[in-house]
């Protein structure tokens, strides 16, 4: 048995030596590992979270001269991986779902502001939209609010518990403000993927669906006699956000046309003097015990990347709106955003 143990030990030692040399070669004053794992809260490598993360992470890896890889493990697994990684070998990129899931009380979502460190924001996906069939009796969002207020049931297909539901909740809140007590006429049809939501519309089981500019724009270009034809009624993004998009907009819909569907043209009151808006923002999340120097390091590297100005072009080409805020600023901003939405949900409960 002797030769066998000898060789195993040798292999072990050799591999250990390789391991030590590579992990020690991270950038000089940056306490970041040579191999950074970036987990995202989505399981899809075709989705917006993955796309956005890979744009940013590739540049970050170049800048810091490290290896970095985006892993689409999904929200629950990503939070778990983050919790385990005290030394900062794993960081996470996710969007507003991370705190909205908590607000809606979805199982497994804890308070990110308590349990993790909120890092820099990197971009906005401005595409969150609400659509109706092209032959719908509702010409505008206002008509939908009025219809619900006048006792007509309006069914909205959404994916429950987060980004897809927040616009619906805001709409419900708007009905409540204008027609107190009538908000229950706005009914959520809980369903899953974009395909399912579209299908709900085709089947006549929903009057309005939540969708996105990216996935649904071509449906809005279909002739009215096509049963698949749809029409935008509302984009939840801020006016300023859409205004930053490339002029060509998306597909055959120009930026100018998109701007028709955002505030102040479409008006969803959040309280007496403010309109509701929702931008889906992507940001980093870190383990609670991550070295502040490492956080700083990522902030600085990102600041440099955004100063160079190339990443903005790349993001806009993919219909993302660049939106870099360093950790401190981002955390405060997102917390404020969360609190606003929490108020809406509380009002609806009460």
């Amino acid at each position: 048995m002797k030769p066998f143990w000898g060789s195993t030990c040798l292999a072990l030692l050799a591999s250990a030596a390789i391991g030590l040399t590579t992990s020690a070669q991270a950038a000089d004053d940056c306490p970041l590992p040579g191999n950074l794992r970036v987990v995202i809260g989505s399981t899809s490598t075709g989705g917006d979270t993955y796309q956005n993360s890979s744009i940013v992470v590739d540049r970050l890896a170049d800048k810091l001269d490290i290896n970095a890889k985006v892993d689409a493990v999904g929200a629950m697994a990503a939070f778990r991986a983050l919790e385990r990684s005290r030394r900062g070998n794993t960081v996470m990129i996710f969007h507003d779902q991370s705190y909205l899931g908590n607000l809606y009380g979805v199982n497994g979502y804890s308070d990110i502001f308590e349990d993790y460190v909120v890092g820099p924001t990197i971009a906005i996906n401005p595409g969150n939209a609400y659509l109706v069939p092209k032959d719908s009796p509702y010409q505008s969002l206002e008509e939908i609010i009025d219809a619900a207020g006048n006792g007509k049931e309006v069914r909205v297909a959404i994916q429950p518990g987060g980004v897809s539901e927040i616009g619906f909740s805001a709409l419900k809140n708007a009905v409540r403000l204008k027609y107190p007590g009538k908000e229950d006429n706005l009914v959520a049809v809980n369903t899953g993927s974009q395909a399912d939501k579209n299908q709900m519309l085709f089947d006549g089981l929903a009057d309005v669906i939540q969708g996105s500019v990216q996935a649904n724009e071509q449906y809005t270009q279909l002739p009215a006699d096509d049963q698949k034809a749809m029409r935008f009624v509302w984009l939840t993004a801020r006016h300023d956000t859409i205004a930053q998009a490339n002029e060509e907009g998306m597909g055959n819909t120009t930026r100018e046309q998109l701007l028709q569907y955002v505030e102040p043209n479409v008006h969803v009151p959040m309280n007496a003097d403010q309109d509701f808006t929702f931008d889906k923002e992507f940001f980093f999340l870190y383990n609670k015990d991550m070295d502040p120097a490492a956080i700083h390091c990522i902030d600085d590297a990102l600041a440099e990347i955004y100063d160079e100005g190339e990443i903005q072009e790349q993001q806009k080409r993919a219909f993302f709106i660049p939106n870099f805020k360093p950790s401190q600023e981002a955390a405060g901003y997102l917390k404020e955003k969360r609190d606003e939405y929490a108020t809406i949900l509380d009002n609806l409960k009460g």
Partner: peptide, 9 residues
């Protein structure tokens, strides 16, 4: 972490 060395060894 994140190197695959554990798998290899």
């Amino acid at each position: 972490p994140n190197t695959g060395y554990s798998f290899l060894i």
